[in-house]
């Protein structure tokens, strides 16, 4: 039985790892600047290596000028169980062109040579990280200039060790909060979180086509704000300027992923950048008038 208890992880021990969030990070600086402007952040998700390494690198480099305040960079995985069709296909395209975790980090390193201000957050699944070795991966990510991690299949029950190591390296662990998350679960999630909180708008996979986004959030943003000083981003289902503006009025950041990934597949880099500009404009105007 000793073997068992020595290997167990419990929520209780993990919530004790809470340290104060890093205030001198690219993420903190970006959100502080936006607060002064009274504007929500546009968080754009693109899949690393989609549709091929060169195009993906080009898009990444030009996103900030088109209005992206924070970049989420997807790490492709063969079995993305929480993603809808658009992001699944993007991952398959990237993998087919030889994208690997090492190449994704190389992309960030390359991006950082020209842009030292725009926060880059990696989003993906745990297995490729574990295969690489968590320590090795975190070290390499920090060195490449990554600012944070969103790990879809790492709940706080399993996340303490990784969170502690990430924090030591200045990497934010951005927690996902779902519509199903009961208020009682928030402390555990927030204790391991920094950077910002990612509030999933709907029960479902990425790219859901729903229109009642503001109604779906209801009082939950107020509860989140009450429990945490972190900025709150809302994503899953933001597809156009109008929805983006609606979200920008009530949240600190708007995440757009599937719509952008689809636009890239249909019309290439220029099309994706046009959509980014439109979304940025809508968000800019959202809190005026």
């Amino acid at each position: 039985m000793n073997a068992l208890s020595s290997k167990t992880e419990t929520l209780k021990t993990e919530t004790q790892n809470h340290v104060s969030p890093n205030t001198d990070s690219r993420l903190a600086r970006r959100f502080a600047a936006l607060r002064v402007e009274d504007r929500a952040a546009l968080v754009t998700y693109v899949m690393a290596g989609d549709p091929d390494p060169a195009t993906s690198r080009d898009l990444l480099a030009r996103l900030p000028a088109a209005g992206a305040d924070v970049i989420e960079l997807g790490m492709p995985f063969s079995d993305p169980m929480a993603d809808g069709v658009a992001i699944q296909r993007a991952g398959q395209r990237a993998l087919a062109k030889g994208q690997t975790l090492a190449r994704t980090l190389e992309m960030v390193r390359d991006f950082r040579r020209r842009d030292d201000d725009t926060p880059v957050v990696l989003m993906g699944y745990l297995n490729p990280l574990q295969r690489c070795g968590e320590d090795r991966f975190l070290q390499a990510a920090a060195e490449a200039g990554v600012d944070g991690l969103i790990l879809v299949d790492l709940p706080p029950e399993h996340g303490a060790a990784l969170t502690a190591k990430a924090r030591d390296l200045g990497l934010a662990r951005i927690p996902l909060v779902a519509p199903t998350t009961p208020p009682g679960r928030l402390p555990a999630l927030l204790a391991q979180g920094d950077g910002f909180v990612y509030r999933i708008a709907f029960n479902g996979v990425t790219g859901s086509r729903r229109s009642d986004i503001a109604a779906s959030l209801g009082e939950s943003l107020i509860e989140l704000k009450r429990q945490s000083p972190l900025p709150v981003a809302v994503g899953f289902g933001v597809r156009d300027g109008d929805t983006a503006a609606t979200v920008a009025r009530i949240a600190d950041a708007v995440v757009v992923g599937s719509a952008l990934v689809e636009r890239l597949a249909e019309t290439g880099v220029e099309g994706a950048l046009t959509l980014t500009r439109k979304l940025a404009e809508s968000i800019q105007g959202a809190r005026r008038g």
Partner: peptide, 22 residues
């Protein structure tokens, strides 16, 4: 509530937050 514990390094509950409460 032992469900989320790893046993001998295996098992666990590595799923999206939406499913965790359920």
């Amino acid at each position: 509530g032992h469900g989320t514990q790893l046993n001998q390094g295996y098992g666990g509950r590595y799923v999206a937050e939406t499913l965790m409460p359920l």
